[in-house]
Amino acid sequence: MMEPRLASHMLVSGLIRQAEAHGGFAAVLRKGDRTAGTILLLRREKGQNPALFERFPSLDGPTSWMRVTIEDIDIEQKTSEYLDRRVARDPDIWILELDVPSAERFTAILAAMN
C-alpha cells in the first residue's frame, strides 16, 4: 500500500518556512503542478556554492533528498543548463532556491521536512 504524501505546493510552502526559520531565504523560481509536481532544490550558502537536490523514493519506505551531481567546471552555467533541460522534459516541475547560512542548516531543513 502506498503512503499518502503531501501535495507539492504544501511541501514547497513548508520548505520556505523552514528556510526562513533557519535564518535563510527562499524563492520559488518556477511553479509546477500543485499536487504532484517534482521539486528541485537549488541550495546556496550565502549566495555561493550552488548545489541541486531532488527528492527520490527509496525502496525501504520514505523518500529522501539526494544531491544531483553536476560538473564543478563553470557550475553556474551547468546548473542553469540542467534546470532548462529538466523543465523541457517535465513542465510540472517546481524549482525552489534556498539560500542558507550553512550546509548544516540546510541539512536540518531537509530533516524537518521528511
Results as ranks from 00 to 15, higher is better:
Y82W: 15
D90M: 09
R85S: 15
S102P: 02
V87E: 11
L83F: 06
L83V: 08
R105D: 09
S80Y: 06
T79L: 11
R85A: 15
D92L: 08
D74T: 06
R85P: 02
S102N: 07
D99E: 10
V100T: 15
S80M: 09
V100A: 10
D84K: 10
D84H: 04
D92V: 02
T79M: 09
D92Y: 08
A103N: 10
R89M: 13
Y82A: 04
Y82P: 00
E81M: 11
V87L: 12
I93T: 14
E76P: 03
A88P: 00
S102E: 10
I95E: 05
S102F: 02
L98F: 04
E81V: 13
D99G: 09
Q77L: 13
D99P: 06
Q77K: 14
R89L: 12
P101D: 10
E76W: 11
P91V: 08
K78R: 14
R89K: 13
P101N: 04
D99K: 00
W94N: 08
V87Q: 13
R85I: 01
Q77A: 15
K78Q: 15
E97Q: 14
V100D: 02
L96P: 01
D92K: 13
I75A: 05
T79A: 05
A103G: 13
R85M: 09
D92T: 11
V87T: 08
A103K: 13
D92N: 10
K78W: 00
A88K: 12
A88S: 10
L98S: 00
L96R: 01
I95H: 07
P91G: 07
L83S: 04
I93Q: 12
V87R: 09
Q77G: 09
L96M: 05
R89G: 15
L96D: 07
R105W: 02
I75K: 12
Y82V: 03
Y82K: 02
I93P: 03
D84W: 01
R89C: 10
P91T: 12
K78I: 04
S80C: 04
D84F: 00
D84R: 11
P101A: 05
D74K: 08
W94K: 01
Q77E: 15
D99L: 01
L98R: 05
A88G: 02
L96T: 11
Y82E: 13
A88I: 00
Q77D: 14
S102L: 10
P91H: 11
D92W: 05
S80V: 00
A103Q: 13
D99A: 05
W94L: 06
Q77N: 15
P101E: 05
D84S: 14
D92I: 00
T79Y: 01
P101M: 10
E104K: 09
R85D: 15
W94P: 04
R86S: 05
I95R: 12
D90E: 13
R86Q: 14
E76A: 05
S80A: 09
K78D: 08
S80P: 00
I75V: 14
S102D: 15
T79R: 03
E81R: 14
D99S: 11
P91N: 12
S80R: 08
R86I: 03
Y82Q: 01
D90F: 09
R86N: 03
E81Y: 02
E97M: 12
S102C: 04
L83D: 04
S102M: 03
E76R: 08
D84M: 08
Y82C: 03
D90I: 06
